[in-house]
């Protein structure tokens, strides 16, 4: 469905020197440097997948999404969506694409939400029957009808995001790109948004590609993640497999009645503070039950809990921090 082949992007930056002298110099003889934002990315995404792009700020996620959605022309390489090269046949390809940028709205601020939708209906030449059906469908998930008559400028961030999502889905695109869609949203709005993504993916078989810093989004939605850092592909694969590979351990937290804590031969004690000790063990050769059994022979245990290695640990490791 989506084929990304050797995608690279260079930005040309004008070097600005400080002060008036620098400003004049910059005007007369600008020093240009190129910066490689994305370097040689290749991957394939199938119809109906939800893929999460993760990486630190400035890693090249947004640039990649922009190139995949046809907003930016790649310096090298190409993006094929349903075998159409997006930068060559843009007009045709964009009809099958919906884009939502969390930090900018594509809705018209001066209009009521419904009027914005009507405008899009005409721009994409959606016929009334399809339009009504789409609105009905999306209303069931997002409750969009109650805010249809509200002017966009009076909307809360959560309402505007709902509006933007519906706007991006009006023409029933096969691919939906979401760039940090949950940024700044409260818990219930986030929940609604995740539900929406799951629903359109299930019901409409929409392929969803999203970037996010919200680990909850990733855990809830994505089976597959692509980790990008410094413009390069660091990891690409099933979320659980990546977690198992990068962090094949769990941590057992044990609370005792006093401050002394016994060691365990087959795992490492990573922390010992007051009455609490933490034991890190490899998932494949040990179970928490075994450790608890061993430890309780030596000392009376008050309480235990297990810390799963979360996606945030993976990211910490992958980002190299």
């Amino acid at each position: 469905m989506i084929d990304v082949q050797n995608l690279s992007k260079d930005y040309i930056l004008k070097k600005k020197e400080p002060g008036l002298k620098g400003a004049i110099k910059g005007l007369v003889m600008p020093v240009r440097t190129t910066m490689r934002a994305v370097n040689n990315l290749s991957f394939h995404i199938d119809t109906g997948e939800i893929v999460g792009f993760i990486g630190p700020n400035g890693a090249g996620k947004s640039t990649t999404i922009k190139m995949m959605s046809g907003i930016l022309t790649p310096t090298e390489g190409r993006v094929l969506i349903d075998d159409i090269d997006i930068s060559k046949h843009r007009k045709e390809a964009v009809k099958n694409i919906g884009v939502v940028f969390g930090q900018r709205s594509q809705l018209n601020w001066d209009l009521r939400l419904g009027e914005s939708f009507e405008l899009l209906k005409h721009i994409y030449q959606i016929d009334q029957k399809d339009y009504d059906r789409t609105i009905d469908d999306l209303d069931k998930i997002l409750g969009i009808r109650e805010i249809m008559d509200k002017p966009v400028r009076q909307m809360s961030l959560g309402q505007r995001m709902k509006g933007d999502l519906v706007a991006a889905m009006l023409h029933s695109p096969g691919v939906l790109f979401l760039d940090e869609p949950t940024i700044g949203l409260d818990v219930s709005a986030k929940y609604a948004l995740r539900k929406f993504i799951k629903e359109i993916n299930k019901v409409r078989k929409t392929t969803v590609i999203l970037t996010t810093h919200d680990l909850g989004d990733i855990q809830e939605l994505c089976e597959r993640i692509i980790i990008i850092n410094h413009g390069e592909l660091m990891e690409d694969g099933n979320l659980n497999e990546i977690v198992d590979r990068i962090a094949p351990y769990k941590t057992l937290v044990v609370e005792y009645y006093d401050e002394s804590a016994p060691e365990h031969v087959r795992c490492e004690m990573t922390e010992h503070k007051g009455n609490v000790a933490k034991y890190r063990f490899m998932k494949k050769d040990l179970t928490a039950a075994e450790i608890i059994a061993d430890l309780s022979k030596e000392k009376t245990i008050k309480d235990v809990s297990i810390e799963e290695t979360g996606i945030d640990d993976i990211i910490k490791i992958a980002y190299g921090t």
Binding site: K66, S69, G70, I71, L72, K91, V94, K95, I97, V99, F101, Q103, R104, S105, Q106, L120, I123, Y124
Partner: peptide, 13 residues
């Protein structure tokens, strides 16, 4: 300024 040009250009118009 708002950075919406790019998305505006995405539309088939």
């Amino acid at each position: 300024d708002r950075g919406t040009v790019a998305t505006d250009m995405m539309k088939p118009i």
